[in-house]
């Protein structure tokens, strides 16, 4: 449910990301009236799309990783390493989300130069993205289900594993 909702939001952002430069071409070349701040808006959309879609990457286990050595380890060691990586990822994402939140609180008035897009939107996307990723990592850590690489299903997912 949550995942579907996030998917819809990100898709809308991606759609806008393609549409805005297109609109700029039409307005500038056909009507001679370039949109002021279109590039700024596009960059804003890119930042939000990348961060908000990040929990989807983690949930799909599509993070880019060189897992060859890890997967060649003895069973117990490998599982311990999996746990360690999961916890480190959880801590890292949690910290990033917390820091992004702190930056929002520190500079609430910060905005982009032309369109005055408030920075808390960018940082909010980073906060939500890393926060969401932390939750997904937490769920993956708690779940008893083996990871795809462990079951050899990696080839079916998007993740790169050796």
């Amino acid at each position: 449910m949550l995942r579907q909702g996030l998917q819809v939001i990100c898709t809308v952002l991606l759609g806008a990301l393609v549409t805005v430069p297109l609109l700029q071409v039409v307005m500038r070349d056909l009507f001679g009236a370039p949109l002021i701040g279109a590039e700024e808006l596009t960059r804003f959309l890119l930042i939000c799309t990348v961060f908000l879609a990040y929990p989807l990457v983690v949930a799909g286990r599509e993070n880019i990783v060189m897992a060859e050595l890890r997967e060649a380890l003895p069973d117990r060691l490998r599982r311990a390493l999996h746990r360690l990586i999961g916890l480190a990822a959880l801590a890292g994402c949690g910290l990033m989300a917390w820091v992004a939140l702190g930056s929002i609180i520190d500079n609430p008035g910060n905005a982009t130069p032309t369109l005055k897009i408030p920075f808390w939107l960018f940082l909010g996307a980073a906060c939500a993205g890393f926060g969401g990723a932390a939750l997904v990592h937490l769920r993956q850590a708690l779940s008893r289900r083996p990871t795809p690489t462990e079951t050899g299903a990696a080839a079916d997912s998007h993740s790169v594993s050796l």
Binding site: R28, G32, A33, P34, I36, G37, A38, E39, E40, P113, T114
Partner: peptide, 28 residues
């Protein structure tokens, strides 16, 4: 008049290029 001139993407420059009569066009 009406020609596309590059404007630094800040309000002040956009206003100035307009004042010169050209069409302010943002380019990095």
């Amino acid at each position: 008049e009406g020609k596309p001139f590059r404007a630094v993407p800040l309000d002040l420059w956009i206003s100035m290029i307009k004042g010169m009569g050209a069409t302010p066009t943002p380019v990095e």
